[in-house]
Design a protein around this nucleic acid. Structure first.
Lengths: 347, 347
DNA sequence: CTGTTAGCGCATTCAT
DNA sequence: ATGAATGCGCTAACAG
């Protein structure tokens, strides 16, 4: 009936005895520290492997003594999605403090590359790990690489800098998210012909650009019968987005779907409602907030494509911790999914 | 710039000194053990609260010495979804062993209530925690309650027994999953009138029954123009499902959508393809496996509604561990979502 | 290059 | 009802 067996709970000392060396030598091998004869290294490694030995993390953590410090560099301002991530970090505080981990929030203008880069530079040496909502820019890339060179573990959060040497990216594949939006638009409008509107914050933002790219890809290859209107840029601002969309709806009575790539969903929704067309137009936007939740329940918004902010907060912390401990990371666990949220599967 | 402050990393000893008692007394209060004057208890608790003190889990774990044993009671047989959960448990083995945790798999016929109940009874006393894919039946409920009374922590996995006193349920809300399926069918078929077919493993299975309930709810209230055909029961078997669906497709040339509530998706897909109708019919099924992934990419399957087996495996372990340690559980983290998976957001 | 040793913070006897 | 003392398994500093 039982399948797995219980392993005998070995300790470093057991390994040391079996390999015929001292505790300290096993420890050196375990952490690839210098000063051990290659031959001895091999012998110890073999005993470790043979016994499938894993050092007790609790003991290791305790013996290290030193607490770990992580910094989260987040955008200033009232972006609700970022606020959710910060809130979930706050919820972890008991968990963190029971592990002698500290997370410090650093709010910076992440949209100004020089400010962000400068902000990152000041962190060097003070932290074991840094999570940053990054802007893809040469200055930022350099700052990230400097941190990495200084021995700090770095993960990019939500927005990546693939060309940097960051250790990990915690966030979604935005091209795939855009493709998902495109497929949903195409599938939900049915057979009807008509125009599709698309509004983003700015094409200069990497995540927005990638989503637009993925969206257009799917529309061109699979729903070419639909007419995509030129991209509008609402700068993630409610009022501006509302105005742009209002004008657009006036001009095109045959719009059947609307995709909002970035923030400003409230403004877009307002324009839709005031035109009295919220039920006819398939409306797709990003992220789950109190507001998009309400819009989904009302039926104004048809789908919210989202990334789970709680998952991102915890994944970033866990990845930084694993990196700091030189532990392997459970990649399946830290992979952030593209959530399709509709009225009936709201969490 | 910085927002959170680093707490001073207190220890039990600090609390003891500040409260004017010994280490042992603080420990007693911390674990609600008897033998402390109420007055002293209060004083110690206040000091703990005032300092927002959290005992170092690593030290606690180390001092306990004793390893924790958990059992996972899973269905025998070749259910791919269950096999995925087991596989993810296997992937955690290094993680588990580094924490001196052991997970033992117990395979049982969970569909026979008396066998399952008997199986659970044998576990009593041997484990700190038990996760069980449960069948909702009085005998099983009693067995679960007995385990709980014996001090074992119990979580139900994937399939719940709400009337039992299990400590936690790790799995999705199946009514909501059924509603989600219904909404997707209704939205994806467009304006077309026609018939909708539905096939389940068995109405006797609680999760199937709940999904059917949710599905019908949405169809009746929002898509009453669609004609729902009587439920078929394929017993989660590919061949039987294929035969049933083939016959149904022959009989009804105007079927526009098909919802498979349980397993047997491969058989259903085969029937669809052999009838040459896989492109016209909106097909929705559950769970992501190698096969449903392929069907999604081919376009035979339009949506897979799924629960993340890796997440479920890890959540069950974490919840059992938190329960065993008397730690609070991060409910947002352990909540299992209803995933809507389409071709473009496959993980 | 290798070994010895003193804690890390808590749980748990055993005394008082 | 309370306190003192021991050790969990590992890291890090030091000694050879």
């Amino acid at each position: 009936m039982a399948v797995e067996t219980v392993s005998a709970a070995l300790t470093l000392k057991d390994i040391a005895r079996e390999a015929g060396v001292s505790l300290a030598t096993v420890d050196r091998v375990l952490h690839n520290r210098p000063g051990v004869r290659p031959d001895t290294v091999r012998r110890v490694q073999e005993t470790i492997a043979r016994n499938a030995f894993h050092p007790h993390v609790a003991a290791a953590e305790l013996a290290r003594g030193r607490a770990r410090r992580f910094a989260f560099v987040m955008p200033t301002g009232a972006n609700p999605f970022m606020q959710q991530i910060e809130a979930y970090l706050g919820e972890m505080s008991a968990w963190l403090s029971a592990r002698r981990l500290s997370v410090e929030l650093i709010n910076t203008d992440v949209f100004d590359p020089s400010v962000l880069a400068a902000s990152l530079e000041t962190l060097s040496g003070d932290y074991d790990g840094v999570a940053v909502v990054a802007l893809d820019h040469p200055g930022v890339r350099a700052a990230i690489n400097d941190l990495v060179d200084a021995g700090t573990k770095v993960v990019t959060l939500v927005s990546d800098v693939p060309s940097s040497r960051r250790h990990h990216y915690v966030g979604i594949d935005n091209i795939a998210a855009g493709r998902t939006a495109g497929a949903l638009v195409g599938r939900l409008v049915g057979e009807k012909p008509g125009k599709v509107a698309i509004i983003a914050g700015s094409q200069g933002l990497r995540d927005h650009a990638e989503r637009i790219f993925g969206f257009n890809q799917v529309m061109a290859s699979e729903f070419s019968r639909l007419d995509i209107l030129p991209l509008l840029e609402g700068r993630d601002d409610d009022d501006r987005s509302e105005q742009l969309i209002s004008r657009l709806l006036d001009k095109h009575p045959d719009i059947i779907s609307l995709y909002n790539v970035g923030a400003g969903t409230q403004g877009v929704a307002k324009a839709l409602t005031e035109a009295g067309r919220e039920k006819q137009i398939v409306f797709i936007a990003h992220d789950l907030t109190a507001m998009t939740r309400r819009l989904l329940l009302q039926g104004t918004l048809d789908v919210a494509i989202s990334q789970n902010p709680g998952h991102e907060a915890r994944a970033a912390v866990r990845v930084l911790l694993s990196l700091a401990r030189n532990e392997p990371i459970l990649s399946e666990q830290e992979n952030i999914r593209i959530d399709i949220l509709m009225r009936d599967n709201l969490p």
